[in-house]
Amino acid sequence: MASDGVVVEIGKVTGSVGTTVEIPVYFRGVPSKGIANCDFVFRYDPNVLEIIGIDPGDIIVDPNPTKSFDTAIYPDRKIIVFLFAEDSGTGAYAITKDGVFAKIRATVKSSAPGYITFDEVGGFADNDLVEQKVSFIDGGVNVGNATPTKGATPTNTATPTK
């Protein structure tokens, strides 16, 4: 695992066909100046998982989280898009600690492993708008004895992609 920078880890949970599971997305290594904004994309298989919603985690402190935390689910493109932009203008609602960034709610549709993997990152910046190093650890849903650990090695991303 990367020793510096922010680590975004997609949790690994267990479920069975027809059940709804909650998959946490963790941030670790949050910089001392916090995270003022970030955007990134995960990939998944809508034939295996139906993403039914995404909720902000406990490290989102904006009293009205829909102003700073936004997501979009595109089953036709097989992606989930995340956007966080601190909304106070003063840094008061920045992410300042490690913990759960988001909770992905999904219904298991198939007995195949439900991988959720890193696809791309736009950027991560602290309260001074300084770009942060970030790496990703894939996860998803274990169905029966299947284990979604494909790509469990962190993917280092030093520069934003478009």
Rank of each mutant, 00 (worst) to 15 (best):
S3E: 10
T117A: 04
E86Y: 00
G18T: 10
N156S: 13
P63R: 12
A112T: 05
E9A: 07
T107F: 06
D119N: 05
Y115G: 11
T96Q: 03
D4S: 04
I35C: 01
A158H: 12
V13N: 07
N145P: 12
F136Y: 04
I104E: 01
F82W: 13
D128F: 05
N64T: 11
G91I: 06
F27C: 01
I10T: 07
N47A: 05
G122C: 01
V108P: 09
E50M: 05
A102D: 06
G140D: 11
D58L: 12
G34D: 15
D138M: 09
T161D: 12
G91N: 02
N64A: 08
G57N: 15
S110K: 15
L83K: 00
G5Q: 15
V25Y: 14
N156A: 12
G15M: 02
P154D: 14
P56N: 05
T155A: 13
N145V: 15
D58P: 05
T107C: 05
S111L: 10
E86G: 01
K109V: 11
I80F: 04
D39F: 01
F101L: 06
A102F: 07
D39L: 00
N142D: 09
P148R: 07
V141S: 14
A125T: 02
G53S: 06
P75H: 03
P154H: 08
F27Q: 12
R105S: 13
G140K: 14
V21L: 14
T71Q: 02
K78L: 03
E50C: 04
A36N: 01
T117G: 07
T161R: 10
G29M: 03
G140F: 10
I95G: 02
E9H: 07
K103S: 10
T96R: 12
K109D: 15
V17K: 11
I137V: 11
T157V: 09
S32D: 10
D126K: 01
V61C: 09
S3M: 04
V30Q: 15
T153I: 08
Y93E: 13
G57C: 11
Y26C: 11
I73T: 08
I35R: 00
I79T: 01
G89Y: 03
G151I: 07
S16Q: 07
R43C: 04
A125C: 06
Y115E: 06
T96E: 13
F40V: 02
D76H: 02
V141A: 12
A92C: 06
G29E: 03
K162N: 05
K162E: 03
T117I: 14
I35A: 08
A94F: 01
R28I: 08
Y93C: 12
A72M: 01
Y74K: 00
D87W: 15
S110Q: 09
P31K: 15
N156K: 10
F84W: 06
N156H: 13
G123M: 00
V6S: 03
A94C: 11
N145T: 11
T71S: 05
V13Q: 03
N127S: 02
T14S: 08
I10Q: 04
K133I: 06
N64P: 11
K78C: 04
S110M: 11
T19F: 06
T20D: 03
D55F: 14
T19Q: 04
E131S: 04
F124Q: 00
P160A: 10
I52P: 06
K78A: 06
S3Q: 14
I59N: 08
L83R: 00
P56S: 11
S110L: 12
F84Y: 02
A158T: 08
D126Y: 01
F124P: 00
P148W: 03
G123K: 00
V134F: 01
D4R: 08
A125W: 00
P65M: 07
E131G: 06
I10L: 07
E120N: 03
P154G: 11
E50F: 09
V48R: 06
S88D: 03
S110R: 13
V25M: 01
A36T: 03
I51S: 07
A72K: 00
V13T: 06
A94Y: 00
R105I: 03
E50Q: 05
V7D: 08
V21Q: 05
V30R: 10
P31T: 04
P24M: 04
K133Y: 06
T155Q: 14
F27P: 08
P113A: 07
D128S: 08
T157I: 10
P148F: 02
A106P: 07
D62E: 11
T90G: 15
A72N: 00
A72P: 00
G123Q: 00
D138E: 05
I51K: 08
D138S: 11
G122F: 00
V141Y: 11
G122H: 00
N47C: 09
R105N: 13
I60N: 10
A72F: 00
K12I: 12
F118D: 13
V6A: 04
A125E: 01
T117W: 07
L49Y: 15
V108K: 07
V17A: 10
N156C: 14
V61R: 05
V61D: 04
Y93H: 14
V30E: 03
F40T: 02
V81Q: 00
A2E: 02
R28L: 11
F101N: 11
D138H: 10
T14E: 05
G29D: 04
A112W: 02
I51C: 05
V41F: 01
G29L: 05
V41R: 00
G57E: 12
I116G: 03
F82K: 01
E120T: 02
V108A: 11
I95E: 00
N142T: 13
G140V: 12
A146I: 12
I137D: 13
G139S: 12
D45P: 11
T14L: 09
V21C: 13
R28K: 11
T19M: 04
F118E: 06
T153V: 14
I52Y: 10
Y44P: 02
K78N: 03
Y26P: 09
A106M: 08
P160Y: 09
T147N: 12
V25G: 04
F84A: 02
D98A: 12
A102N: 13
P63E: 15
E86F: 00
N156T: 10
A152D: 09
K12Q: 08
A106C: 14
I95P: 09
T161V: 10
Y115K: 06
A94T: 06
K133S: 07
V134D: 00
E120V: 03
T71M: 03
T161L: 08
D119G: 06
K33R: 07
A112K: 08
P63G: 15
N47L: 05
P148A: 06
P24D: 03
P56E: 05
I54T: 07
E9M: 02
Q132L: 09
D70Y: 15
T153H: 08
T90K: 05
P24G: 06
I59W: 03
E22M: 15
P160M: 07
F40D: 06
G91M: 15
S68F: 05
E9Y: 09
L49P: 13
V8P: 05
